[in-house]
Design a protein around this nucleic acid. Sequence first.
DNA 1: CAGTTTACTGTACAACTGTACAGACATCCA
DNA 2: TGGATGTCTGTACAGTTGTACAGTAAACTG
Lengths: 197, 197
Amino acid sequence: MSTGTEDFTAKARIRNAALDLFADFGETGTSMRAIAAAAGVTVGLVVHHYQTKDGLRDAVEERIVDLFDEAIAQAPTSGGAREVAAARDASVARMLEQDPAVVGYLRRALLDATGHKGMILHKLTDLTARQVATLRTAGLASTDHPDSSQVIGVLVRQLGQLFLQPMVDSAWEQLAGPRAPEDGKPRLVIGVADPES
Amino acid sequence: MSTGTEDFTAKARIRNAALDLFADFGETGTSMRAIAAAAGVTVGLVVHHYQTKDGLRDAVEERIVDLFDEAIAQAPTSGGAREVAAARDASVARMLEQDPAVVGYLRRALLDATGHKGMILHKLTDLTARQVATLRTAGLASTDHPDSSQVIGVLVRQLGQLFLQPMVDSAWEQLAGPRAPEDGKPRLVIGVADPES
DNA sequence: CAGTTTACTGTACAACTGTACAGACATCCA
DNA sequence: TGGATGTCTGTACAGTTGTACAGTAAACTG
């Protein structure tokens, strides 16, 4: 549902269905037939458009990178570097909220260093590095930390929270009861620090 | 190899092989035959000992909880509560270092809220809650935070780091080059804070 | 020693996997 | 109009999946 599985071309519907299912059940846990059924087509058409399952995964990852790109592009570029960065973070956060499947997919892909055939972390690191670079040259993004630390910091803050939150939620529900008060729930703190030299 | 696949009974070898493979390739990505081969037996024996794949997974998760239990039990209980807690953390950390497959398995299982059939997070939360409770009654574990926050804090610090580290490593390698200086790599900071009231 | 339980192999089976391909239908350009 | 191109269905196939089971070898029990 999330990525708008309703109208669009069959090709896009297939890709969106694949994203949803990969997010929930993983790549090996999702069959071509299940994707086809979710998209309202037959297996044959999936193969016709994407050749192989690998091809379909590549298309899904490309789509995710595009979503990040679009989210960043939509954020206003006016104001100080701090405001620009904040606006970009907010825009990305909004996109991830609208498309929970992206979070699910990334969670699986990124934490799966070993064995994941895709390159999405690589591409997202790239994207973030470019983003930080433009902020540094254009404005006053603080340069008292090495830029690689800044890039990793953005990645970890934006994504790490999303990955660990389910763990916190689950533990909180177990400890505080199912109808959770919710406002007593501890808040996750995630970031990076420069190593002590 | 990690969990000592060498000697032991065939039944234990099967369980250990399953843990290793589940950690690397996930449950759906691992076939009964692959587990049998890794343990040096035939599929028939796997079924004989564990009936179904679900049964095998249950045994694997039970084993993991046991490893945590043993690690905690091995830590000395002398000294102040702070020392006891530190010793337990260290003992668990040592166990996880000796058995990287446990980390891999937990990474997959815990962050997989949806769709994971096992109950391992539930059991580990339980274990941690009991651990915190005994520290509180026995000694002086600070009671100025709610105990659920303390429990979640322990979980997040012990496990969160392990889950996010691969992401940091991968990004660092990409940004700083393959033969990484390593000592410039930013350090992960993970914890929980009480919500602002 | 015989008898029983347990460990283990090998094979069999139905269900499902990814992929290939022949053909039906639609769309578009000459 | 007619051919070409692209969309889409249905079926087919070889390989893999989890599980069942008959039978052999070994270990234990009396």
